[in-house]
Design a binder for these strands. Structure first.
Length: 943
DNA sequence: GGTTTTCCCTAG
DNA sequence: TGAGCTAGGGAAAACC
């Protein structure tokens, strides 16, 4: 293409753009077409650069349309028809701008004095508004003064709505009755604004500005005004993205308050709500809503929790209990209307509750140092802070890649869904596990940052890859290339340094610096920043490999990812061989070393020595010796000793973890029931306790006894319902499941009972297994724990014994105990007669009520109301027993009630909490039921 | 009644 | 204008 061709190309493209954007009255679509010298990032090239066309369009939105036209192909006069591969044509505009101006997320930006002027036309609600040329922005790297955090204003809020009886609130019907708000300066301990807006009067609350309104319209507008006045940088809350924010917007729409949804920093720009689904392998499918509020970051603590922590429940209540050690009242939505319709005292009650829901997200934000960690992550990867919650991992890698590529004059092709040959590749080796209970110390050797090290050591990158056809053509000398174990060819750094290795080197070097600075740092805030940074750097380094293997991602390159794993496989095998060859009696050591297990980047070695100290010494020796055989920077490290060590199978083990010979650090368990979220607490606690007794106390008989007691309690119905709750994630929508499963079927049944509160995709479903006909499938026996509690439905202890407890226990005990099965599961403790729970469900509804003797539970045939003929004469004794029973249960209930009152923060009010995450709640409900039953029995004596 | 498939969750 | 990866155990349903 010569200059004339470019001009023709420009005109043709302009014409095509005009055709496909007829409605637009833009004078010109394509601003410029320039010839530039660039290089593609893909494959090693011998020439430095080649000509590319750089197309500049009038508006960002035109890029996509332009890309479509070029990809489909255009006909240029004199050149014929041609379709084009486009480069960097699918980059989010904000990111493109930031990359071009060298700006990262969480960045400090300077607009130098004299380089700006007061805004000619005010377009925003910002306190300062000015005009300047985009190229005048000066981006400051996060160092020294510029590593400090800005004093963001953070608004934390929560709304309450009055649902109709038995229905979850819907914006089309149900009013917003309260909004609680806290505003805090980032880094300060206390909020400087605390208020609650209520519909109708509300009694005063100490330290809180109570603002009461007569109409909903007034509340909504007052909240909008608060936003304007406070002008928060960050809006936080719990589930605000999926519930509170859309609810407010939709409610204002229903009420026709057109002036409400202007909450952003741009004047006259309305907040838009869009349904959104996010789906990734890592986070699963998640339905949410996109709410656009310009200039304010929405930070939903629920989303953050779901991304950063694996928990069995994500209710605000359960998360607060977990991280803040504090329970929160959980008021069922049906009670909220009653409180609203009461008086100013009951509304005050609700307001206190609402305020707490606004306060807890702020507490979580502070406690988990979210602002520090997320700002550091944004700075390291370069993406805006908002991406960290709304987008996946790959955008972070892409952002770094684009920045690095720009420095090197490389451009990244837009290859959408273009599967590069095979679509899967072989992963890591997991060494065969020699299962057993090891009473000699086991040393663990680990490769440090294995995959990043491999990519650095062998210069694996898009731009160093030599495809087979090029390899023949280029005829590269063997000493300047590496052939990977998977057969791929990459050039060595002398010919072309890879940019992935360069990114990794920088990330790991920066992490080393951050860790060194962390050691020096005294100021807790500075430490928080540095720790957040080193963590962000580690996570970023580790996800580069994943990015190259993401076949549905932005720039998959399986040649890189499969080479990485192939080196990894070779290395773990090599390590195992070296250990077993060198550490032998023949080689002058006391014992023959054995590798008993290993996974991806680690090997577990039994050196045969009997003290932790000796195992550590040999571990260090082995690590140093073997490290020497690998290309830099690959390094094998001695990390820890397990002693004793219980190896159950691949990816499943437990042991005491030692890093110094004096004392073990902790009990470590991997993969087994104790660390899994889909087991009920009974199993988790039982397994943990047994492991503790076996590994720490070395008391196997004690562990056996503990098992027996637990089983006996279970069969006697003496176990709390909260311990029997199993939770599983709902990973797809109902119809997408190929087979029936307990949690899926239950979610479906719950949806029929109340569609608004039933679990949806991405939620975790708690359930218990209830008694049912023999041979019934588990999915027919699953039930909502609250429903079970309220309707007194009997659970199925046998199921818990056979399907939950027994296998995990046998797996642990079998390596240790002969006849484990007989000993644990078939003793006399399993023959305890279970007291059948009285039932008013199912078949029992049809059975005729028959009185049973209060003494021996035999059916009474005579005309007596209390005792059978055998127990006649024991009246006094049995009456006293009944009275004592009632009083015991009353005391128990009273204690639990007080405990709940303390939790809700008031000893003078009813307990409203129905939290299914709280064991106390289950016990309180059960005590209440038991007490009522006992009282009924007592009443029978009143003849 | 044994084998295969599906699903969940974890290790690394 | 979207999504890191594979290996693997174990429970339960579905299949033959």
């Amino acid at each position: 293409m010569g200059p004339d061709d470019i001009s023709r190309f420009h005109q043709t493209l302009e014409g095509r753009m005009r055709e496909s954007n007829r409605s637009s009255n833009v004078p010109r679509f394509v601003k410029r077409v320039e010839l530039v010298q660039k290089q593609t990032i893909m494959h090693y090239q011998t020439q430095q650069s080649q000509p590319f066309l750089k197309i500049v369009v009038a508006l960002p939105t035109m890029v996509a349309s332009c890309r479509g036209i070029l990809e489909r192909g255009i006909t240029i006069e004199g050149l014929g028809s041609k379709s084009f591969l486009t480069y960097e044509s699918n980059i989010l505009f904000a990111l493109r701008f930031m990359i071009d101006r060298n700006i990262v997320g969480g960045n400090w930006i300077e607009i130098p004095a004299g380089r700006y002027r007061k805004a000619a036309r005010v377009m925003s609600y910002c306190q300062l508004e000015l005009d300047c040329l985009y190229s005048e922005l000066v981006s400051h790297a996060a160092e020294g003064e510029y590593s400090k955090m800005a004093p963001f204003r953070i608004l934390s809020f929560d709304i309450e709505c009055a649902g109709r009886k038995g229905h979850f609130p819907e914006p089309t019907h149900d009013p917003v009755i309260q909004i609680a708000n806290l505003v805090t300066h980032q880094g300060e301990g206390q909020p400087f604004v605390r208020n609650v807006m209520t519909l109708k009067s509300c009694s005063p609350i100490v330290g809180v500005d109570v603002m009461s309104f007569d109409t909903e319209r007034d509340i909504l507008l007052a909240w909008r005004d608060l936003i304007r006045e406070v002008d928060p940088d960050i809006i936080i809350g719990y589930n605000i993205c999926k519930f509170d924010l859309p609810y407010l917007i939709e409610r204002a729409e229903v009420l026709k308050i057109a002036e409400f949804p202007i909450l952003g920093r741009i004047r006259n720009s309305r907040v838009r709500v869009r349904d959104a689904t996010f789906s990734s392998r890592q986070y699963g499918v998640r339905e949410s809503k996109d709410v656009t509020i310009e200039g304010r970051v929405q930070f939903d603590l629920l989303q953050a929790m779901q991304r950063d922590y694996k928990l069995s429940s994500y209710s605000l209540n359960s998360v607060s209990a977990h991280f803040l050690g504090e329970q929160k009242e959980d008021v069922h939505h049906s009670i909220i209307s009653d409180l609203q319709n009461g008086n100013s005292e009951t509304r005050r009650r609700l307001a206190v509750y609402c305020l707490k829901d606004a306060y807890l997200p702020q507490r979580l934000l502070d406690k988990l140092m979210y602002i520090y960690n997320y700002v550091e992550m944004a700075r390291v990867t370069g993406v805006p802070i908002s991406f960290l919650l709304s987008r996946g991992q790959s955008i972070k890698v892409l952002s770094q890649l684009l920045r690095k590529a720009k420095q090197k004059n490389l451009v990244i092709p837009n290859i959408k869904g273009q599967g590069s040959g095979q679509d899967t590749f072989e992963g890591a080796t997991v060494l065969e596990a020699r299962a057993g209970f090891y009473e000699k110390p086991i040393a663990t050797l680990d490769f440090a940052s294995l995959y990043p090290s491999i990519m650095m050591a062998y210069n694996l990158c898009y731009c160093t890859l030599v495809p087979p056809e090029d390899a023949r053509k280029l005829n590269l000398p063997p000493e300047s290339i590496n052939k990977t174990p998977s057969g791929e060819i990459f050039v060595k750094p002398e010919l072309q340094k890879g940019i992935l290795p360069e990114i990794l080197e920088e990330l790991l070097a920066a992490r080393k610096r951050a860790k060194a600075d962390l050691k020096e740092a005294k100021d807790p805030l500075e430490r928080a920043v540095l720790d957040g940074r080193q963590l962000a750097l580690k996570v970023s380094a580790n996800s580069v490999y994943g990015f190259t293997g993401a076949t549905v991602g932005q720039l998959p390159c399986l040649e890189i990812s499969s080479s990485v794993t192939s080196y990894g496989r070779q290395m773990i095998e090599h390590t195992k061989k070296l250990v077993e060859d060198k550490f032998t009696t023949v080689g002058g050591y006391e014992h023959n070393a054995e590798v008993i297990y290993g996974d991806t980047d680690s090997v577990m070695v039994q050196f045969g020595v009997s003290t932790v100290e000796d195992a550590m010494k040999l571990g260090r020796e082995a690590a140093d010796y073997i490290s020497g055989t690998f290309t830099k920077p690959i390094k094998l490290e001695f990390e820890k000793v397990y002693f004793p060590y219980l190896l159950i199978s691949k990816k499943r083990y437990a042991g005491l973890y030692w890093t110094n010979p004096g004392k073990f650090d902790k009990m470590d368990a991997k993969g087994i029931e104790t660390v899994r979220r889909d087991n009920c607490l009974l199993v988790k606690n039982l397994v943990t306790e047994c492991l503790h007794k076996i590994l720490v106390d070395r008391d196997v008989p004690g562990a056996v006894q503990y098992v027996k007691n637990t089983i006996s309690d279970l069969l006697m119905n003496r176990v709390d319902l909260s311990l029997l709750v199993i939770t599983k994630g709902l990973t797809k929508t109902g119809e997408d499941y190929a087979v029936k499963a307990a949690h899926v079927e239950l979610a479906e049944r719950m949806r029929k009972r109340d569609p608004a509160t039933a679990p949806t995709v991405g939620d975790r479903v708690p359930y218990v297994i209830i008694k049912a006909a023999k041979g019934a499938k588990a999915y027919e026996k699953s039930e909502d724990p609250i429903y079970v509690l309220d309707n007194n439905i009997p659970i199925d202890p046998q199921y818990y014994l056979e399907n939950q407890i027994s296998k995990p226990l046998l797996r642990i005990f079998e390596p240790i105990l002969k006849n484990a099965s007989k000993e644990l599961l078939h003793g006399s403790h399993t023959r305890s007669v279970s007291i059948s729970t009285p039932s008013n469900s199912g078949i029992m509804k049809f059975a005729k009520k028959q009185l049973t003797c209060l003494g021996c539970k035999a059916v009474i045939s005579g005309d007596s109301q209390t005792l059978c003929s055998h127990c006649k004469g024991r009246e006094a004794e049995l009456y006293c027993k009944t009275v004592a029973n009632v009083s015991d249960l009353e005391m128990l209930f009273g204690r639990l009630w007080t405990q709940c009152q303390e939790c809700q923060g008031s000893l003078h009010q009813d307990v409203l909490c129905t939290s299914r995450d709280c064991p106390i709640f289950y016990r309180r409900r059960k005590a209440q039921k038991d007490m009522a039953e006992a009282r009924l029995q007592l009443d029978r004596w009143d003849f």
